[in-house]
């Protein structure tokens, strides 16, 4: 007798899984490369953070090296203790916060100001042109931009202009205070145009009728700027502000690495540079990893807080 499969019979769990996989296995296959990539290049290095609690021996590798010890007794926080015991770490932390704080203070309002004025331009073509030009530096690496600024600083033309204006030569790379000024100014130069994009997108959502109504009420340009344009930007500003605050531990490695020298290191060397010099140049991997862990933990907490805050102010959050 021929067995007839009953289509109404309840499927077993295994059958269900099989049917599901037969339809959807390509999706899992498609996810696989990305999963493997992140496992190797993101998750595996996270396990390497144990180095911050170990004494490193090259021939033993990260996993084989013993836990950090002082005079034979295990003290896994050895590297953190030595890190916090000297004033060096605090110095670099202060440098980092000084540079990123000043960048936030002056660099953050710059694109907003630019957008407010761009919005007043009557010629759309001119506006487009200004925008295109202002984006250019964003695409140029700090290797090149740093080289250009170093060359300008050393040139006779620039120094004679400085002498004419200030009565003396101004060297941005041989005075640590001027160097910090250079870092903030060149950061604005590179990012101000690019920073406007997000605000220009926000301005598209401002109702044009508001401007017409304000015209009828006899509002001037600055009044309209203050009462219509700026409030339209507030959501984007608050989200951007929170995101920038969460990046406060990163003062811009590429910019500093490609322009600094020993003379300006006392204010120019940030935690990231300290980590690089200590680890890559100096070969002190555990201590360097400890700094990285410190930075990473603070960064993570700040991003989590930032995301919560963006949701509180009515944004979508980062995820």
């Amino acid at each position: 007798m021929k067995r007839v499969k009953n289509p109404f019979a309840k499927k077993t769990k295994a059958q269900k899984v099989f049917a599901y996989l037969r339809r959807f296995w390509p999706l899992y296959l498609m996810a696989l490369p990305l999963v493997v990539y992140f496992a190797v290049f993101n998750y595996y290095p996270i396990t390497g953070l144990q180095l911050a609690f170990k004494d490193y021996y090259v021939r033993l590798g990260i996993w084989g090296s013993p836990w950090a010890s002082v005079n034979g007794t295990v003290n896994i926080f050895k590297h953190f203790e030595s890190l916090f015991s000297t004033s060096l770490f605090t110095e670099k932390l202060v440098n980092t916060l000084r540079i990123s704080g000043l960048k936030l203070l002056f660099g953050f309002p710059a694109p907003i100001l630019l957008v407010l004025f761009l919005n007043e331009l009557s010629s759309a073509k001119f506006m487009k042109f200004v925008q295109s030009v202002s984006y250019i530096p964003y695409f140029i690496s700090w290797v090149v931009l740093g080289g250009i600024f170093l060359s300008i600083d050393a040139s006779d033309v620039f120094q004679s202009i400085m002498t004419a204006v200030f009565g003396q030569q101004v060297h941005f790379f041989s005075d640590s205070n001027l160097y910090v000024f250079f870092l903030v100014a060149s950061d604005i130069y590179k990012g101000v145009g690019w920073g406007t994009i997000i605000y220009l997108a926000a301005l598209m959502n401002v109702d044009p009728q508001l401007y017409e109504a304000a015209d009828l009420d006899g509002a001037g340009r600055f009044k309209k700027m203050w009462h219509i344009t700026l409030p339209g930007l507030i959501p984007a500003i608050s989200i951007n502000m929170i995101l920038s605050l969460s990046n406060i531990m990163y003062a811009g490695f590429d910019q500093i690495y490609n322009t600094y020298n020993d003379v300006v290191a006392d204010k120019g060397e940030t935690l990231e540079l300290y980590l690089y010099n200590l680890g890559v140049t100096g070969g002190n991997y555990p201590l360097s990893t400890a700094i990285g862990l410190f930075n990473s933990v603070i960064g993570c907490v700040l991003v989590l807080i930032a995301n919560k805050c963006t949701k509180l102010v009515g944004g979508e959050g980062i995820w």
């Binding site: 993101n42 595996y44 996270i46 953070l49 990893t289």
Partner: peptide, 26 residues
Amino acid sequence: KGRSVFLVYVLITMLFSGGLIPFYLL
């Protein structure tokens, strides 16, 4: 099925990293 796990898996890479030295040694 398993999408939310995958999402969190990707998200964590955005939040936390091993930093320069473990990556360098890898």
